[in-house]
Design a protein around this nucleic acid. Structure first.
Lengths: 247, 247
DNA sequence: CGAGACGTTGATCTGATTCAAATACAGTGG
DNA sequence: CCACTGTATTTGAATCAGATCAACGTCTCG
């Protein structure tokens, strides 16, 4: 649960009890090869899991093969608290790199909620974050140019990776093909390539092996009007407001 | 709470107690003029409300004025269960027509959850629905052509309107300007107009005053590969799985 | 070393945008 | 009831951002 702990403690000070509680959530690990599906659309999952290592994508494929990536999942990301509804999931999740997940004991989460643990608040907060990211994805793809989209995505992914300790101050492993980026941004991979090369030519970024370096952060930000409101970086409240009510 | 009751009872048989419980949620009504903001980005809301009458949109505006509609809100739609986190909202909501909202007592909702009422399950289910709609919005705008987008949106809106009794079998009041449709679909309003006229010319739809009629449903469906999985029409479970645990 | 996947680049095409101007339409005030 | 005003719709013409097609380079890994 390192990445999740890291993520949660990035904002709110978690104490040792919280750490223990988190550790106890973890049931067993599972790992997936690159490209492998972790969850397939239409399945009913009764499991909550957390990405422990590696990158994954949520995605949907149309009948004719066009595919849209909804969101990238990094270590520390959770799938899927809505499981309590026991409904069929409406999208798939695939491993991008080798991925290790930790299956989480749903009952334990529930008792955390029942106890009013600050972990519960933090977990709920991650779902708020995730929805914010989804909404931003809509705006990005709906109302931004290709160059803006790419710049914006890079900044967002770097920020998220940094939070879980998977990135340096201005560089990160980006183990994601241009095809995937295209499917996330609603562009053709050819055009993504051109935009990327353009950003390099302009000295805003650099890519070497799998490592992307941000050379001109301020210009990159300016190039797309990046803001981080949607990431809800204020951090979770100590407790959910309804917990007070429940007492 | 008619529209909400209608929506919830469309799937699950609610009994009289449930109806009473729902009725008790309603605190007071409020109404808004067309174009008026109901919630503004950056505000902290501590209120949950339900659309009682009229249409609204969730939207985000970029600094330079480009705006993206995230989702349409119809009678029976709820904003915003995540309020329990007491966080700043990352998007705005504006009335499209004259809108009447009912402010809901958050505490009452919470006690419904605590009691394990089937209403609570149904409410949670509405949030699952809404996320499904958001994800579909991403796919639609990311990987579909203009014509597909328009056809798909029409079918989705009609279905949603029908559920809350705001539409006939193949027609509906669509009080939404082409500008708004464009902002929802990531297109220019000029092009939306052309596509709409194209669909009319092909005899798939008809628009008269504010009323849109679907003339060729099957062709419309075929034109965009419409499916309703994302609406999660199976309906909510009787109760949330964690309620059993809580006992 | 060979195969398959990914990246790069050029040439060409097109779906959608932009610009512009002409209706249609709804609401307001006289 | 009509003229007036602002807003939405419609249509045409020109343009462009990004897609498609095609070919070639590069890396990885069995």
């Amino acid at each position: 649960m390192q990445p999740l702990f890291r993520r949660l403690s990035y904002y709110s000070k978690l104490n040792d009890d919280d750490g223990d509680a988190l550790a106890k959530l973890s049931l067993r690990d599972h790992s997936y090869a690159p490209g492998e599906d972790i969850i397939r659309r239409g399945e009913k999952t009764s499991q909550v899991f957390v990405i422990k290592q590696g990158w994954a994508v949520r995605y949907i494929t149309l009948e004719d093969g066009r595919t849209q990536v909804l969101n990238f999942m990094l270590p520390g990301d959770i799938f899927d608290l809505q499981v309590f509804l026991d409904d069929k999931v409406d999208h798939s999740v695939a491993a991008v790199t080798k991925v290790t997940t930790t299956v989480v004991n749903a009952d334990s989460i529930l008792s955390l909620f029942a106890q009013g643990s600050s972990i519960a608040a933090a977990l709920w907060w991650t779902t708020v974050q995730e929805e914010g990211i989804l909404r931003e994805q809509i705006v990005r793809n709906g109302r931004r140019t290709a160059r803006e989209r790419v710049a914006h995505l890079i900044l967002e992914l770097h920020r998220r990776a940094r939070i879980v300790g998977a990135a340096g101050a201005d560089s990160m492993e980006l183990p994601v093909s241009q095809i995937l980026i295209a499917d996330a941004l609603g562009l053709s991979f050819v055009h993504v390539n051109r935009v990327l090369r353009g950003l390099e030519k302009d000295g805003l970024i650099k890519k070497n092996k799998g490592v992307l370096t941000i050379l001109g952060r301020s210009q990159l930000i300016e190039a797309c009007g990046y803001s981080e409101e949607h990431l809800h970086l204020d951090g979770p409240p100590r407790r959910l407001s309804f917990m007070a009510v429940a007492e």
